[in-house]
Amino acid sequence: MRVGGFWQQAKEIARKDLLVEGRAGEALYITIPFGAVALMLIPLAIGTDRPLLAQVGPGMFLAVSLLFGMLVAFRQTAADTPPQQELLTLLGTDPAAKFVGRAATSTLLLVVFEIVLVPVTILLYNPGRIPGWPWLILVLAMLASGLALVGTLAGSVTAGLRTRNTLTPLLVAPLSMPLLLGSAQVVEALKQEQSILLWITLLATMNLALAVIGVVTARPLEESSR
């Protein structure tokens, strides 16, 4: 497959997925409010002690982003039904292009998810100003793309299964642990004004590893659905 064709296909898939999500609103109207509710539940569970909440706020945001953000990454509306998949195959769609396009859409949606949840966290937990906070923008972007990659990968492993909605989180949660750890440690390091280079490197490595794995396994995985 020509390289131009590959990116063209990835772009078409991403555009279609975005359009579908825009109409179905699965991430926007369901998962994002769900995440916001989760952020409200935590203070009710652990107590409304303000200094404590300020301290755990960033961590809770990251945990909620991971647990609920993964629902964005393998949302039902991004899964192809068997006839749709056959059609894509016969159109000569490269499974790797499909993976890239799909992960790109999920990254974008996860960024939106985070953009909504950050103010909610600040309002509810009042974590105070973190020195060097602009770095967190980079961290959130890498968390979004990493989660999108691992979610898309797990979503294609569980495509079409009856247990998909319960099984995929089980696969994603442990595999995305380095993403959570990396992001959380950047917050910690920034608070203590230490170097964040190692953690940024970890996040970047995770993203790179997941992207390579996703692209390499896309074709052998696709055969399975047929």
């Binding site: 296909q9 078409e12 555009r15 359009l19 109409r23 509306t77 039904t81 998949q85 894509l88």
Partner: peptide, 27 residues
């Protein structure tokens, strides 16, 4: 190759023309 089976491969959220142009562009 085109295969027309029992279930049309369409995306429910897309309009008929969007479905068609999506497929045409991919092809």
């Amino acid at each position: 190759i085109a295969l027309l089976g029992h279930h049309p491969g369409l995306w429910g959220e897309l309009t008929l023309i969007e479905n068609l142009t999506f497929v045409a562009r991919l092809a």
